[in-house]
Design a protein around this nucleic acid. Structure first.
Lengths: 217, 217
DNA sequence: CCTACCGATCGGTAGG
DNA sequence: CCTACCGATCGGTAGG
């Protein structure tokens, strides 16, 4: 029988992830040396390698645990408001932005450094990201005109919402004029009002659709 | 009199930027070695250093020239449609997305690798980015309710549009159902319809505003 | 759980 | 005396 893991093994790994995410976000993955990470965690390089045997596994675990958090806070939120799917979408978007409040470094690392992972590790992450996107797509679908669902507009609409929510780390400040819940409200309003006011003009199989809006024709 | 620079000096540097942007986007700045860049450009490392005396200057020039392109294609586009500022905004957004068509690598590098530049070089870039954002803010301002302009909503609205347009490199495919012009139309419609349907409920100095929408109260 | 190291590779520069 | 360009190798530092 191997010696059992220390009781706080998991906690130590969690602490490593937090500190490492900070250094990765600040200096970039390749420039944040393992020696630097270990020093920041108050341990030797050798002890650091006891918790993570490869540097890339630290990066992987940062992103994996972050997306797991996002999946957790957005889980089971649909159907809670009777027949008000728009409210469901708002609540999910609020939950996402709220989760970002304390995960700025991890979010930064996910966006900018995913491609530095080994291929198969990237794939695992991308599958998880797809789950999250699919969850939002499913929440958006009942809110938009049927026609949008069948013409390939659902993906552009979903990614527009993700663009707004995920881009927010570059400019949003909690000290600013808008709170997170209100920015979620603004973003969801944009997506839903925009989707209501955009129609497919022509749908020719094999070529692009043509989009019609009241404002722009 | 010093010997003049070779006639194709500027062209050679441009070719270096294209190839390097590709390698930076694929492998990341730190992993794309100068030897790799030089080989990709069909020259020795020493000749490469003749054109760029520091690796970081290549990164800087990629991002600088890219944003200069974006500033160029979005310049002088307002006031062209009489009293239709919404059309101006659409045309600017179309121009931006169209510029992204052939600049995917540079866009990727700008988004993900700006922070790897030396501090003062980062500042130069951020000032240029601010110019572009300000240009869009100025185009959006006449399209939204006056109240939005004075309550601090203009920045969130502007950044929502940038979020949608700049996020698109992660999912948009020219082979997809939507062409670039139509995605610009969709994004601008979302921003404008959303801004029309969002009102400031309470404006208390020193604290957050409260947002009101028809859908969500 | 540490210090002492390794094989490999980096960005940048030498002489000619 | 300048810039353009080569093959070879430098001092330092990375992950492990």
């Amino acid at each position: 029988m191997g010696r059992p893991k220390a009781a706080d093994h998991g906690e130590k790994r969690k602490a490593i992830l937090e500190k490492s995410a900070e250094l990765f976000a600040t200096h970039g993955y390749d420039r944040a040396s393992v020696a630097m990470l270990a020093r920041r965690c108050g341990m030797s390089k050798a002890l650091f390698y006891h918790y993570y045997s490869e540097k890339s596994e630290v990066l992987f675990d940062i992103i994996r645990s972050h997306i797991e958090d996002l999946l957790a806070v957005t889980d089971g939120l649909t159907g809670k408001h009777g027949d008000d799917p728009q409210r469901d979408l708002l609540v999910m978007s609020e939950a996402l932005l709220e989760a970002y409040r304390t995960a700025d470094n991890k979010h930064h690392v996910q966006i900018n450094q995913l491609h530095l992972l080994p291929r198969n590790r990237q794939k695992t992450i991308k599958d998880m990201e797809r789950q999250l996107v699919d969850r939002f797509s499913a929440a958006i679908a009942p809110c938009v005109p049927v026609e949008a669902r069948s013409s390939g507009l659902l993906k552009p609409i979903t990614m527009s919402l993700f663009g707004m929510l995920n881009w927010n780390y570059l400019w949003f400040r909690d000290q600013g004029p808008l709170c997170r819940r209100d920015y979620a409200k603004l973003a969801v309003t944009m997506v839903l009002e925009g989707a209501q006011n955009a129609r497919v003009k022509a749908l020719k199989p094999g070529s692009n659709i043509q989009l019609h809006t009241a404002r722009f024709g």
